[in-house]
Design a protein around this nucleic acid. Structure first.
Lengths: 185, 185
DNA sequence: GTCTATATTCCGATAGAC
DNA sequence: GTCTATCGGAATATAGAC
């Protein structure tokens, strides 16, 4: 227990979001932490192991955050989720899902499965939030909650991708219009 | 003029959409075409040159397609655009924008500029289509046309990404709900 | 746990023959 | 325009000393 392992995962998370999983190397992780790439391999023998750990931590983080919001009205919970993406946007990061979905076909089966787990978890939470929010009349939308959840997820995901290309105002346009559509009086 | 150059660009386009720009190699192009990687380098000295050509052809294709739709009602034009994405989805391809936005930070300046050109072209067309469609009462939405264009673009882009991870039904859910939102009576 | 050193493989790119 | 051959570099990963 030296803290190095946590630093490696944290650095890998940042690199996946900025450069993509296939575009960063063990050296990109080792150099800023002032260690050698062999040390990284000690903690994560294969790159796939590192990728799986990054995703698992993200799944856990998502569970913790949404758990804290449970007492809030559903429209507030939704606003918190948008805020998470807003913070990523201000740091020039894209979301894990967006980054990993692009390279999905090149991944080992173990990583593909983890990506699917993450996607399912987010969609499930979002679907329940929307359904409950519609019951409580604080979120408004037409059609099935599941389809709406996919729409919102695609908005958030691509808002970060588009911001990278077109500038950070793209995120704000999308996020603002999205919340207005769902939570107008 | 041997046709080889066109085949190379076509293969590169497919590889960008399936594996990502950084994840395919000159060998991935050469082998299926039964040529050597030196032949690819003859036509495109650097990988960046190849990337730029792929994007330029996509920009041109978009211009041609949308040009053919000019006489149609705007809601029909929108449906055609969704159909283009539907075809990509059925082939397991993601859109160029989605794929290239992820790796954007790793690109040479010349390629980054081309990606931005492509994004601007799509958003501009979509914005005009929405504005005109609202005037003609065949497309309905709230807020600014530009913000709505970004939302729709993010839906289409990520629908292909999510389909890759969650299965092709994700695209249909998103596309159907999207058209219903905009074109309901 | 971290290091040095290295094995192996692959990639982008170039030189020169044909 | 395409080939063979190869260079230089980088990446993942491993072996063995400390």
């Amino acid at each position: 227990m030296s803290g190095t392992k946590e630093k490696i995962v944290s650095m890998a998370d940042r690199l996946v979001r900025t450069k993509g999983f296939n575009a960063f190397s063990y050296k990109d992780i080792a150099a800023p932490l002032d260690i050698k790439n062999a040390a990284v391999h000690y903690h994560f023998p294969a790159k796939c192991d590192l990728g799986v750990e990054v995703i698992e931590q993200e799944i856990e983080k998502f569970r913790e955050q949404t758990g804290k919001w449970k007492q809030l009205p559903e429209n507030e919970q939704l606003a918190r989720l948008v805020d998470v993406f807003r913070q990523h946007n201000s740091q020039g990061n894209i979301c894990l899902m967006g980054s990993l979905a692009t390279d999905f076909e090149t991944f080992a089966p173990a990583m593909q499965t983890k990506v699917q787990e993450m996607a399912d978890g987010i969609v499930t939470w979002l679907t329940q939030c929307l359904e409950q929010g519609r019951k409580n009349k604080c979120i408004h939308f037409k059609g099935a909650a599941h389809a709406r959840a996919l729409l919102i997820m695609s908005n958030l995901q691509s808002s970060l991708l588009l911001s990278r290309v077109m500038g950070p105002t793209a995120f704000r346009s999308i996020a603002d219009q999205l919340m207005e559509d769902l939570c107008q009086k």
